[in-house]
Nucleic acid binder design. Structure first.
Lengths: 228, 228
DNA sequence: ATCTTTATGTGAAATCGTTCACAATGAAAA
DNA sequence: TTTTCATTGTGAACGATTTCACATAAAGAT
């Protein structure tokens, strides 16, 4: 059934609230579909896709229905087409230029992490404040001085910053990054950063997942589903 | 959000369902309280704690109330005491011995990541299948051959495994790890691992957070809260 | 000793997310 | 062509989570 009000609503009035969970599941669908596409699979049902991600078929259909009707009744969804639809929804059918701040342990891992590039996130600038690191070459990128970030970020067309500096200096760096016009930040520092309301901030807290495992173990609790 | 069942109940009778979100927020509270404790702050109200984590005071109180009454009316919560209560709930008032599989980019970053050790997660074993890496020293740990993992894991008393190997081999390694008796796995490989139902598995998907940022930017999606 | 203020703990209400259930639809078979 | 079958898309029901609102309790002031 076609919905009366289009999701890409012309007037921009009726804004549907898409839950964070739905967006996270879109990432999962995308990964599964990319794999299927590479294998040459042409169509997939919500049931089959759901079972691969340990979700329910209804959940898959509902998630997709927020954005349009991509399937064919009786047949399922066209793998390749759905893959690119989801990429479009997530905004990764393009290249995003990313700058990484802090060429330490985490920073170095990020530069080499192939999965980012595969999703269209290109790390094109590295910044540090350590004179020994500035000027050195990491995977073909010369480390710049963080005290001169604004012109370099603007020139390179950076739109996303990854924070890999220690918690003690993260807020100062972020203030500079925000001042330079960056609107999206992925933070690895174990601290709550303050940013203006028009800047998107996500925190990656790796201890949290270990703590969750620890909790599950000491409480002898059986999970029903494993979430990403 | 999914939940796991909790029997953290004195009588062991009433089984409360603690949501995943609540557990994740406990991690946040713990981090905030550790910082406050170090600063010498003695008490904190739910209002103040909530504002630091961009949550509501009611949420903080409700979360804590699932596990007991830790506060004093009119005054707030005792920082140091609440910190150790939460550490106890999460099961991190002890040392967990961790083995890391795959001494590549991510693996190397994990070994040096101080936050893990600070939370009681001690990486004491490294495994790889690359002959050039086996025998080498990373932060004081000699890399072992993954093909001989069982005796080494048992001898070292490992309870948690971190998977930092490529997606293509992750399932094979995990099968061996499970066979060796490990019951908790933190997976960094971008693949859906299959484990028996008595093994706890968490996935860390770093691309997902970038994709969320990308989605937010292309959709002008205004978040109300920034989730960890 | 009493009053005032502050802040917890918690049922109840409101909100949000998931699953159900089925009409609608197209593909494939007869 | 008509029937059968599989599977989508989606309101409605359900369940879970968050927020509200207030009785309760302790601290500090007078």
């Amino acid at each position: 059934m076609e919905s009366i009000e289009s999701d890409t609503d012309l007037a921009g009035k009726i804004e549907k609230r898409i839950s964070e969970s739905t967006i996270r599941r879109l990432s999962l669908y995308l990964r599964a579909l990319s794999l299927l596409d590479k294998k040459g699979v042409k169509t997939i049902s919500s049931k089959e896709l759901a079972s691969r991600e340990k979700l329910t078929p209804a959940q898959v259909r509902k998630d997709l229905s927020f954005f349009g009707s991509f399937g064919t009744r009786g047949l399922g969804y066209p793998v390749s087409e759905l893959r690119s639809e989801i990429a479009g929804i997530l905004g990764i059918n393009r290249i995003w230029k990313v700058a990484l701040f802090g060429v330490g342990n985490i920073g170095s891992a990020m530069v080499s992490y192939k999965e980012f590039a595969r999703q269209g996130f290109q790390i094109v600038k590295l910044f540090d404040n350590d004179q020994r690191k500035i000027g050195s070459n990491h995977k073909g990128i010369i480390v710049s001085d963080v005290s001169n970030l604004e012109p370099e970020i603007k020139e390179a067309g950076i739109e996303i910053a990854i924070i890999g500096v220690p918690a003690t200096v993260a807020q100062y760096i972020v203030d500079d990054i925000v001042a330079a016009g960056i609107k999206a930040i992925l933070n690895f520092a174990p601290i709550n950063l303050k940013v203006p309301s028009d800047v998107y901030l996500r925190n990656e807290n790796m201890s949290m997942e270990l703590e969750y495992l620890s909790f599950a173990m000491v409480n002898n609790h059986s999970e029903k589903k494993t979430k990403p």
